[in-house]
């Protein structure tokens, strides 16, 4: 479904600050995959997602989505296939607009015309969808989103993102800015939406337990490379200990700091 071949990304090419964030990565995301991505800070996880969404363009290599070469196409065009949720809950919604207006914008992708599509039927639909969040938001359609808490806002973002049934759902540490209770709720919702709508998704997480518990495939990244790609039975029987050992095996390092970076 997503074909990434030999992409690299070097920032500030030819200067003293030259920095290769992604080194010759090839990855094939199959339809229905739920991939979790772990790796220390600076491993290139977010850069990889940025390359897929098109918010940055690769130095070399090609990216295909649903068989179409999108390597050079701008972010807003690719957005037709991709739903992305950021770590910062305020990036997915507009705090200045009401809940119903926010949901209205997200219910259909692409250029908006001079149609008023927000009507009673649409509102009922939104209410029904909001009930699934179990946060009482269905009674607050007219409230500005800026009044919601971080957890509510991120849950709403998640709901709004899956509303348009994207071909690929990208989650960039989307629970990291939330308190543990809200993080659990949002993660639970994530799993449910992915199951219900059979979404293909990629989730970056700093939590190794989550990386093992969720999804059918796990990628480990380090210094701009994918150093581990496990799926199937191997993924199911994975433990945190095994994962850490694998990391040392592959990198043949025994730094204490590595364990600190790969938070348990």
């Amino acid at each position: 479904m997503i074909d990434i071949s030999n992409i690299s990304k070097t920032f500030n090419l030819g200067t003293v600050n030259e920095n290769t964030a992604i080194r010759d990565i090839s990855l094939n995301v199959r339809k229905g995959d739920f991939i979790t991505i772990v790796g220390s800070n600076g491993a290139g996880k977010t850069t990889l997602l940025n390359l897929i969404t098109g918010s940055i363009l690769p130095s070399t290599g090609t990216i295909k989505i649903l068989g179409k070469d999108v390597t050079r196409s701008p972010e807003y065009k690719r957005a037709a296939y991709i739903g992305r949720i950021f770590q910062n809950p305020t990036l997915g919604t507009s705090g200045k607009l009401s809940l119903e207006d926010n949901m209205n914008i997200c219910s259909k992708k692409g250029f908006k015309g001079l149609k008023i599509s927000l009507n009673a039927k649409q509102r009922d639909l939104f209410k029904k969808e909001l009930v699934a969040l179990e946060m009482g938001l269905e009674d607050r359609l007219k409230d500005n989103v800026g009044l919601l808490s971080g957890g509510q806002r991120q849950a709403l973002t998640l709901l709004m993102t899956v509303l348009s049934r994207p071909a690929l759902l990208l989650l960039d540490e989307h629970t990291a800015a939330l308190d543990p209770r809200n993080a659990e709720i949002v993660l639970g919702l994530t799993q449910r939406f992915i199951d219900d709508y059979k979404l293909t998704s990629m989730m970056i997480t700093h939590n190794m337990k989550h990386a093992i518990e969720f999804g059918n495939r796990l990628l480990m990244m380090d210094r701009g490379e994918i150093i581990l790609d496990v799926s199937g039975d191997e993924k199911r029987t994975l433990t945190v200990e095994k994962l850490v050992n694998k990391f040392h095996e592959i990198r043949q390092t025994e730094y204490v700091t590595d364990e600190a970076l790969l938070t348990l």
Partner: peptide, 17 residues
């Protein structure tokens, strides 16, 4: 409505294609 979101959150508008 989308124009309204623009001034507040350009990323959201881009994400909606």
């Amino acid at each position: 409505v989308t124009l309204g979101a623009m001034g507040d959150n350009e990323q959201m508008v881009i994400s909606q294609g």
